[in-house]
């Protein structure tokens, strides 16, 4: 499900790049909406994904609704990759592909002389588009993750003057993680924006639990502790696509960097998003297995 040869052809091969730029967004999206469910019938991996969604949602949704969510989840997964692959070719006219709301909140925080943290759910929505779009609009963005191959991320997304964003992988040993955290703190001093996708855990301290419709859900206390140490305002940020395939980035007003405030302010929003748009989550395999999300 992660291979997108047609999109790659249009957006990576020089001869076809002009064609890739010319095709309207909703054409691409219609194509993906047609193809992704078909793949769902033939691909073993896609069938597995559908099974995880229906399994995870078995207790909270009816069988018909679960099936429909599973189908939309396949489209989401495919489209997410397509948008990211297409980005280098469409960055110059990103406003046709992306709709940004709430940037004024981010600007207010940055104008106050501090950096900011954009907080979203781990593997939820089209988060990669927020990073790329804000970088394109002149913000210095840092994204972190425990990616297994940060070098590949850097090679793929870290070059080119239209990509003012950096991926910092905190995989590796203690000293590497420590250095990454220091780099984050230094970047925030330069008024950079840090993007974090917070993980959910199936067990934890009741203090960090948020209202959730598919079992118990605890926000990662390490991230909350880090936010409290970094002491910069936190802005919830979620990215979903509209019916034409355009990514809608929504940034919410700033929250004080205190764990309690984040659980109340961000946690309730995240739970609401998961409840209303479950197909935009890439977490169902782990939910079904009871693993950390």
């Amino acid at each position: 499900m992660t291979r997108v040869p047609l999109i790659k052809l249009c957006h990576r091969v020089p001869g076809f790049m002009r064609l890739g730029r010319a095709i309207p967004v909703h054409w691409y999206f219609s194509w993906i909406k047609t193809v992704a469910p078909l793949i769902g019938f033939f691909s073993v991996h896609a069938r597995e994904q559908r099974r995880y969604v229906t399994l995870a949602l078995a207790t909270s949704r009816g069988p018909g609704e679960s099936k429909s969510i599973a189908r939309r989840n396949l489209i989401y997964r495919k489209w997410r990759v397509c948008l990211q692959v297409a980005w280098p070719n469409i960055a110059g006219r990103y406003h046709q592909w992306v709709c940004l709301q709430g940037e004024e909140y981010l600007n207010q925080v940055c104008a106050a002389g501090r950096g900011a943290i954009l907080l979203s759910g781990h593997s939820f929505g089209f988060s990669g588009m927020a990073v790329r779009t804000l970088a394109q609009r002149g913000h210095e963005i840092i994204r972190t993750g425990a990616g297994r191959n940060p070098e590949r991320q850097r090679r793929r997304w870290g070059n080119g003057d239209f990509q003012r964003w950096q991926y910092l992988g905190y995989h590796g040993d203690y000293w590497h993680r420590f250095r990454v955290l220091k780099q984050l703190q230094d970047a925030l001093r330069r008024k950079a924006v840090l993007y974090i996708g917070i993980r959910g855990l199936p067990a934890g301290d009741p203090e960090y639990e948020i209202d959730y419709c598919h079992g118990r859900f605890f926000l990662d206390p390490q991230i909350l502790r880090l936010i409290e140490i970094l002491q910069v305002p936190v802005l919830p940020c979620f990215v979903l696509c509209d019916k034409n395939g355009r990514a809608g980035i929504k940034i919410f007003p700033a929250i004080t960097p205190v764990a309690k405030e984040i659980i109340t302010g961000f946690g309730s929003l995240y739970a609401e998003y998961l409840r209303n748009f479950p197909e935009n989550a890439n977490i169902w395999k782990r939910v079904a297995r009871g693993e950390e999300i």
């Binding site: 203690y174 993680r177 420590f178 955290l181 220091k182 703190q185 390490q222 880090l226 140490i229």
Partner: peptide, 10 residues
């Protein structure tokens, strides 16, 4: 741990 290490460094 690495998070507290950052706090100590700051």
């Amino acid at each position: 741990d690495s998070v507290l290490a950052l706090q100590l460094l700051l």
